[in-house]
């Protein structure tokens, strides 16, 4: 970690390998968050929370 990073260069795109790996890792985590089942996700309440009325006194949609 204490050495200059290797850089990848395609046209106008210039990115270091650590930055590229971080970016790929974030995309993987995001995809997993969408696909992975949430623990006890099937037993949470079906009803939306009570919406606070706005300034005009109308309830907001959940």
């Amino acid at each position: 970690m204490n050495a200059p990073a290797t850089y990848l260069h395609w046209g106008f795109v210039l990115i270091s390998v650590p930055n590229l790996l971080l970016l790929i890792g974030m995309i993987v985590v995001f995809a997993l968050a969408l696909l992975a089942p949430f623990p006890h996700g099937d037993v949470v309440d079906e009803a939306p929370p009570p919406a606070a009325p706005d300034a005009r006194g109308e309830a907001r949609r959940g």
């Binding site: 997993l32 968050a33 969408l34 992975a36 949430f38 006890h40 996700g41 099937d42 949470v44 309440d45 079906e46 009803a47 939306p48 929370p49 009570p50 606070a52 959940g62």
Partner: peptide, 17 residues
């Protein structure tokens, strides 16, 4: 209202990472 500030129930779609 306090029920919104400190809710003890959430809608089903909150069950996601």
């Amino acid at each position: 209202p306090l029920s919104n500030l400190l809710p003890d129930r959430q809608p089903y779609y909150v069950g996601s990472w």
